[in-house]
Design a protein around this nucleic acid. Structure first.
Lengths: 334, 334
DNA sequence: CAAACAATGGCAAACGTTTGCCACACTAGG
DNA sequence: CCTAGTGTGGCAAACGTTTGCCATTGTTTG
């Protein structure tokens, strides 16, 4: 057990007694400056400082209902993609003098619900990245607490998403320009909003450009998902593989290297997210980048603003072209 | 402002009223089962369930003094090295049905103090990774709350560290075996405990093996620190560069590639931490690996155990040899 | 000079729990 | 039949704050 034998912290009562005023006066002297005489105020503040008084935030939260804490739920702390998001959110939370709680949902709704239940009474709002909850569950939650979604859209809820549809368009155009006529999409977790979005846009734009595209998977969106995805993708005969995210794409790259398949000479590979590592893996990865740090910051902003109707924001993306994509190989019969 | 117009949550009072018992009885029916008649207990539990009662954890924390929250402070959320730690800690915290709060100190003591002050009243204990606070500040803190340190040693405090001294020994032996006679250490933040440890062990073992080693830097321990570090390291004429951590090492690798310096033919490069990316950068990085996930889990365990005297644990490390190290180049005069 | 008003401080009730203690009823032992 | 014990429920005080309201004083205004 956590050892309870510690120094008792200084409370507002201690300050009030030492300063010779009532607790209410002490409280106001510290948090509602205009409300008390400047002399008493300064006196109380001096005493508080001398005693090393630190307000108990839990006790503060009880009557006010504001805890000064925000929670962010991400599917996978391990995915560097989320680093930027978390970092941005942390920075903005700090700027708003809130504390950020981070929790990992393992990409599943069970853990997500568990965290939500456990945190609901302790936070001022939730930032949900790539939530796997149903629309109604989310709407329900939003009735109890402020909620803002990242990379997920639900009727009536505030949300922020990177424009992966446009990213998908850029991918298809890029590959088409390089002469590719047959693509394979290596899907991420089924049921995911982003996966659906990306696939939808990819297939639309491919169709519009008269290019073939097939969908493979789903695969776990991790480095370890790479080998299976690479093998399946290659077997389709496509000349370019589009992975659900960079983690998977890098895994694919490694598998291809292992199998001696030259990239991009034989196949091109593209990912989404532009994660840490995408610029120094081998070959460096062509990928769709979005302003994730900004996204983190904006999520916090939106949460704090609490406007109605809830804002729905789309962040621009752009294709960062590196060495994993190149001209399509000449057809074997050519 | 966060919109306060939300559904009022169900409280214990509501449950008690609906069940026709006193609040105290309701409380006990839910949390102290033996204390109340089985019939009332079941009745109360049924009512609580029907009403969708969720205890307010803040209110619970006030009288009990236990919040069920643990905080971990890391110098840099962005460093993938920390993510293993965070993930392990998160997992173990969850297992102990605690919630983990994560905060970024930007590697500086100011922010660290700020977070500590702000969180002190809301958590049951602190996990401090690579703390930059003074020994006395830490001992002071430990008097108020349970604290456990990671990669830092302070008299009287619980701490966990990866054995980077032994890792350093392995590096020197490895490089010596490859014929290197002149090394350069590219230092991390000055004043850091890990940096001091690593340098101390490196220079000791180098001296013992009759090998020359110089210390360069400090450099920021990030990818961006790489270029400066690479240039300075190269200028020393050393045949092997040992970077404070992998982030810096990968930055060095990129700079060397940019300058057309072949690795390991011309210089070898080594890092510490075995972070995400070390196995797919180019060339892949030789580095000192430690069980970081385990470390995260153990940190939580130690915190919860609260034994006296405080345990001081050292975790084994091992050198993961990859392609960034090779035989020393023949001396130019050779 | 009375009346209204602003400035300032304190009392006490909240916020939602937990828990020490007392009261009551019933059972068992003498 | 009295006493002691046990099982069960409730009252009320905590935990450390905030805040609505009242009381007191001093200051204007008509």
């Amino acid at each position: 057990m956590l050892d309870p034998a510690r120094r008792r912290p200084v409370t507002l009562h201690d300050v009030a007694r030492e300063a010779g005023v009532a607790v209410s006066t002490a409280s106001r002297a510290l948090s509602d400056p205009g409300r008390v005489n400047v002399r008493t105020r300064e006196h109380v503040q001096a005493v508080a400082k001398r005693l090393g008084y630190r307000p108990n935030r839990l006790a503060q939260a009880l009557p006010t209902g504001r805890t000064g804490m925000l929670a962010i739920l991400v599917p996978d702390i391990t995915n560097p993609h989320n680093f930027g998001l978390v970092r941005g959110a942390e920075a903005q939370a700090r700027a708003a003098s809130s504390t950020l709680i981070i929790a990992d949902t393992q990409g599943g709704p069970e853990l997500e619900t568990a965290h939500l239940d456990r945190l609901a009474s302790s936070v001022d709002g939730f930032l949900l990245a790539a939530s796997r909850l149903s629309d109604t569950e989310l709407q329900d939650l939003a009735e109890r607490l402020p909620v803002v979604l990242f990379n997920r859209r639900v009727e009536g809820l505030a949300s922020l998403a990177t424009d992966s549809a446009d990213g998908s368009r850029q991918i298809v155009e890029h590959l088409a320009a390089l002469g590719h006529r047959s693509l394979a999409y290596l899907a991420g977790p089924s049921g995911g909003w982003s996966d659906a979005e990306r696939w939808r846009a990819l297939s639309e734009h491919a169709a519009a450009s008269g290019i073939g595209i097939v969908r493979c998977g789903p695969f776990p969106p991790t480095l370890d998902g790479g080998p299976a995805a690479a093998d399946v993708g290659l077997a389709t005969g496509a000349t370019a593989l589009i992975a659900f995210n960079d983690l998977l794409a890098i895994g694919v790259l490694r598998r291809l290297a292992e199998r001696g398949v030259p990239v991009p000479a034989h196949v091109s590979v593209v990912g989404y997210d532009d994660i840490f590592g995408a610029d120094f893996c081998s070959p460096t990865l062509t990928t769709v980048a979005g302003p994730v740090d900004d996204a983190g910051r904006m999520l916090v902003d939106v949460l704090q603003a609490g406007r109605t109707p809830e804002p729905v924001i789309t962040l621009p993306t752009h294709l960062r072209i590196r060495n994993s994509t190149g001209p399509a190989p000449a057809p074997p019969g050519g």
